[in-house]
Every structure is written in structure tokens, then in C-alpha cells.
Amino acid sequence: MRARPLRSPRWAAAAACFAAVSAGCLAGCDVGGAAREPTDVSRPTLGAPGTTVRVLQMNLCNSGRAGCYSHGRAITLAAALVHEHQPEMVSLNEVCRSDLRPLEQALSAGFPKAAVATAFAPAKDRQTQAPVRCQNGQEFGDGVLLVVARPEGGARTDSGLYPAQDLQDTEERVWVCIHLAAGLSACTTHTSSTDAAVALNQCRYLLDSVVPMISRRGGVGPIIIGADLNLAARGSPSPQSCVPSGYQRTDDGGLQDVMVGPDLRVRGHWVLDMHGTTDHPGLLVDVDLRPPSVG
């Protein structure tokens, strides 16, 4: 599916929204010209048949060490986008552990009667085997957040280190997932940025080994993966090369993808302008909790 960009939000409105988020006031905040409701679907209830889950995938470049770092502005804009588009799942790459908190608060504001499950996995430093750290001392890695419509059902998390790593990269890559008792799983990963062959190997390992492994543990149903695969959408190798039969994939036209299992289908997607706060756009995807039609 080819990306269809939303109209670019007006920066003045977005700046006002940043101020509101920073002040802890989310109500009424609008990041500008982007449509408030990208599709005509009703708001879903997770786990109910025939409904839709909205996914927001973002690489926020917030380590403080990379050239794309914007001194925390990416986190503020991400929280504004969560409020604006009200996703049920948010997948994050290149964030500090503490960055999940403001996004959890933004999700809670949009779904006050639900709970929010969060999971974070730090990348590993090859030399020390300790977590990679952001400039502020926080652990650096990947996170995923998921709205839990029935808090009493609970959620569990899984994470792991890929067996294949680029030996020239000091950062060892990881994956992380949340599994709801209702049967939905949400995962994210940030595969190798220095070797496309390794990135492809990691993507295949996630889909061919990790997903079946967690499925065998029981209680795991439909799966959604938001990721920065570091595989160019129109490049070679293509991210499609690691997608198993029956899965669907959509992308931002660059390096980010959302992939869904055989019992789900992509309904639509949009590319969101991050206004230079990071070197990636946001990828907003609606996923139907029902299989594609046959025939």
C-alpha cells in the first residue's frame, strides 16, 4: 500500500499544542490541519470482533547523542499526535525509558476508562553487555504501549536480543512485545542500521522464530508489529522479503513499517510530518481485527 500523506499540520498550532502538553493540559489540543479522524471507522474496543485498532509508529531519535536529536521536542510532538489521533497502540524506537511516561499519560487522557500497558527493552552495549544509555543516563531502546480495555484481564511482556548482530556496531538490537489476555499482541523493534543483510535477518527471526515461540506459550492471538526495520521500502533487500505468507505490511515510504498477522488486515495508513523533531515521519495505521476477505 502506497503512503498517503496527511496535510501538513500548521506549525503555529503545533507549537501551541506543545505548550499545552508541556503544561499537562491535553484537552482540546489540535496539531493543525491533519484530519482528526483519518477514516470513517468508529473507535474500537480491543478484542471485539470486526473492530479497528489504530497504530502509531515513531522513531523519535531522543538519545541525546545523535545528530537528529531535538532536545526533547520529538517527545512533546509525539504526545500531541497521540492526543490528536488517539491510537490504541504506540510503538517507539530510539527513546529513553522515561520517554514512555508522557506518551502513557497522553493515551490515558484519550481513553480515561481503560488502562495502558507499557513495555520497554534497552539495546545492549556490545563491549559491556550493559544497557545502552541516553545522554541523560536513562536506558536507551524501544518501547510499546497498548490500551487495555479490560484492566482486570492483565497483560504480559516479552523481549529479547537478536542472535544475529552486526559485529561492527556497538549497539546490539532487541525486540519487545506486550500480550493482552484478550488475545492481541503488540510488538516493536529497531533492526540494524549499519548492515541491511543483518536487518533482514533480524526481521526474519522476529517473524519466523519469535512470533511462533510466543504463540506456543498460549494466550497469544492476533499480532501487530510497528517497527523501524532499516530496510528501505523500495530498496533491496525489501522489507517485504521478511514478511511471511498471510501477513500484510504497510510503510512510510522510508524505513518504518507496520506488519499484521494473517487474522488481521490493514485498513488504511497515513504519514505524519514530525516537523524536524526527528529524522523519521510518524506512521499512522488503522488495522481491522478481522481477516481479509477471500475471493
Rank of each mutant, 00 (worst) to 15 (best):
R2F: 14
A13R: 12
C17S: 07
C17K: 09
A23D: 00
G24E: 06
C25V: 15
G28E: 06
C29D: 04
D30P: 00
A34E: 09
P38L: 01
V41P: 05
V41I: 14
R43I: 14
R43V: 14
L46Q: 00
P49W: 15
T51V: 14
V53A: 05
R54A: 02
R54D: 03
M58D: 00
M58W: 13
G64V: 04
R65A: 10
C68L: 09
C68W: 04
C68A: 11
H71R: 08
A74W: 00
A78I: 15
V82G: 04
E84S: 12
E84H: 15
C96R: 08
S98I: 12
D99Q: 03
L103S: 01
E104V: 14
S108F: 11
S108L: 15
P112A: 10
A117Q: 07
A117I: 00
T118Y: 04
F120P: 00
T128Q: 05
A130C: 14
N136V: 09
F140M: 15
F140H: 13
G143A: 03
L145W: 04
V147Y: 00
A149H: 09
R150V: 13
P151Q: 01
P151V: 05
E152S: 06
D158Q: 14
A164Q: 13
A164P: 00
A164S: 09
D169K: 12
T170R: 15
E172C: 10
W175L: 14
V176E: 10
I178K: 02
C187F: 03
H190L: 13
T191H: 06
S192W: 04
S193L: 07
S193G: 08
V198F: 07
L200D: 03
Y205H: 10
I214P: 01
R216C: 00
G219R: 13
N230S: 04
G235W: 09
S236G: 02
S236N: 09
C242Y: 05
S245V: 11
S245Y: 08
G246W: 01
R249M: 10
D257P: 07
V260E: 03
V260W: 00
G261H: 11
G268D: 10
G268I: 12
H269K: 04
G276R: 11
T277P: 02
T278S: 01
H280Y: 03
L284M: 01
P291N: 01
P292I: 07
V294M: 11
